[in-house]
Every structure is written in C-alpha cells, then in structure tokens.
Amino acid sequence: MSDFGSIIEKQMNAFFGNTLFDDFIHKELVPLSHLKEKHASWTLEVDLPLVDKKNIEVILSDDHLTVKAKLTKTYCISRGSTVTEFDYFKKTIKLPSGINTKQISAIFKNGILRITMPKPTDGKKISIE
C-alpha cells in the first residue's frame, strides 16, 4: 500500500475501527473471532454466518492461520450513495507459540467454526530436588 494509502487507512481506522475499514479496503468481510486458552489446548472460534461448511478453507502457514469462506449470498453494505458487495469472509490470525500443528482439528456447527489447537505434550523432563 502507498504512503498515502497507509495514512488514510490509519485515519479511517481511528474513525471506524479496524473491522469495518478492512471490509471496505479489501472487499472481504472480516469475521468476528475469539481465541481462548485452555489447559491442554487453544480454541479459536470464528463466527461465519451465511456460510456452508463446504465453502470454508482453513490454511495453516508457519505461524499463521487463515480462514476464508464464501458467502451463500452476496452481502451488500451501503454508505451514502455507495454500495459495496461482499462475497467472502477472510481473516488471518497469528497462532500462539508452541502449538502441535499436526493435531489441529476443526468443526463447523451453528455457523461457528471452532478450531482446536493442542499444546505439545512432549518436552524436556525437569527433575525435582
């Protein structure tokens, strides 16, 4: 993005908040998500209304997870006289460190994608004196 673009983005973020502005810049809706730490795992929940399970993609890279989902219907937002159309949700989330990436699992129920990321159970044993 150009310097001008980044200045405008900063100003717009300050005014509208991150979610709405990301939507309009990238023409992709940013879904709500919530990351929760449990004893043996992390759970990431992503709210995906108007989405079918078959249209969800979850992509794991080194330390990021990207969720992309196609909407069942085009969603339009009008501001003033401008109408913007959206067909996708997309969000990339930085993963917490120390996750067992081989055992990540996902389930989609009631429009909410729940991704469970187990913490590693192996490691160096520490002796107790």
């Binding site: 991150n18 979610t19 709500l32």
Partner: peptide
C-alpha cells in the same frame, strides 16, 4: 437471523 449476525459485527466488537 443470519444477517443480524453479519450486520452487528462492528457493534459486537466495540
């Protein structure tokens, strides 16, 4: 119902 979840994302976040 589904649209309410979409429309209210910003308010939920705030």
């Amino acid at each position: 119902s589904e649209y309410l979840r979409l429309q209210n994302r910003q308010l939920m976040e705030e």
